[in-house]
Simulated assay, not measured.
Amino acid sequence: MKTAVAEVSLSALKHNLLQVKKLAKDSKIMAVCKANGYGHGLIKVAEALSDADAYGVARIEEAFKLRASGISKSILLLEGFFSEEDIPVLSVNNFQTVIHTEQQLAQLEQSNLDIPIKVWLKIDTGMSRLGISINQVEEFLARLKACPNVSDDIVAMTHLACADEIDNEFNHTQIARFTRCVKAHNLSKTSVSNSAAVITNLFYNSTWVRPGIMLYGVSPMQNSSGSENNLIPAMTFKTKIISIKSILTGDKVGYSGTWQAKQDTNLAVIAVGYGDGYPRHAKNGTPVWLNGREVPLVGRVSMDMITVDLGPHSQDKIGDEVILWGNELAIERVAAWCDTIAYELLCQLTTRVEWKYINTD
């Protein structure tokens, strides 16, 4: 009996990329596949998203894995390089880099490269994370344009802090700051939109869009699911029932007895736990999908098992399939019950989980 399985639909990934193309039809698409393809498998994801114009990763190790798998398209290091020793490696492997500090710029100027590197200049418009301030842009641009190690086609980029909140006025503040900066410095190539901005059309005239979570069928917007935006969940996380038992009114379940039965009922023990990456902090009532219905988690999540209340008249059997999230049960709902976000659930599955890739095209 197979227990915890993460089934990834390559067809869903392709479908979701097509939705990005429909929404951002005038922009090039950088498919963000950092963090092991948001937990879906870096190489398989990149291959499925081959119709994207480029790939975005966080670390140089991820870029190496893509190149080693035979992927020749442009790859951008979204956090840039961390050491001057990385700079020749970027040049040789045709990796593009974000520049967001003066230290990076100085190291780039001091390098001696045969092949210049394409640079994306990150401008902080209010998120106060990575990026140079607007009043540094003139100096950075002058130095980048004078540097023989930098190719001519510099892309100006920023990141929106609140794009998942459609009515948040700070989105328009950031966009206005970026737009003024771009116009003041006559920058023709830009990138602003993450998944949320793509869906809400917050910045429609970017040269590049950088979708991430929406490619995996998950909504970047608060209080919504991917299906509401014509996205298909790429991952179905599932397992099996390994035990069924009857309990009486008043019986307590699990470590510390955090749940107590209000009626005589049947429980199923399910083969998944925090050892597989299922969230230990999932609350009583967190839904799982079983035989066409939702049933609630009861008791604490253990390393290898969870327990659900089947109800007093259940007909479920040992070996029946249980879906923890996927098409039948939106991961966004599960994340809400766990006081977290879908991104974290996807990225924290462990190596004990069996991975299966399907393609229905």
Rank of each mutant, 00 (worst) to 15 (best):
K2S: 12
E7D: 08
K14T: 01
K14H: 03
V20W: 02
A24Y: 07
C33R: 01
K34T: 03
G39Q: 05
L49V: 05
D51C: 02
Y55K: 09
E61F: 08
E79S: 13
F82I: 13
S83F: 11
S91P: 09
N94I: 04
N94H: 15
Q96S: 14
E102I: 10
L108W: 09
Q110F: 10
D124A: 07
G131M: 02
N135T: 12
L144T: 06
K145S: 14
C147D: 15
C147E: 01
A156T: 09
A161P: 08
E165W: 13
H172V: 11
A176T: 15
R177I: 09
N186G: 13
T190H: 05
V198S: 00
N201L: 08
L202R: 13
N205Q: 15
N205W: 08
I213M: 02
M214V: 02
S219K: 06
I232P: 00
M235D: 04
M235S: 05
K238E: 12
G250H: 03
K262Y: 01
T265R: 07
P279I: 10
N291H: 07
V295Q: 08
L297E: 03
V308T: 10
H313P: 02
E332T: 00
A342K: 01
Y343N: 10
E344P: 02
V353C: 04
K356Y: 01
D361Y: 05
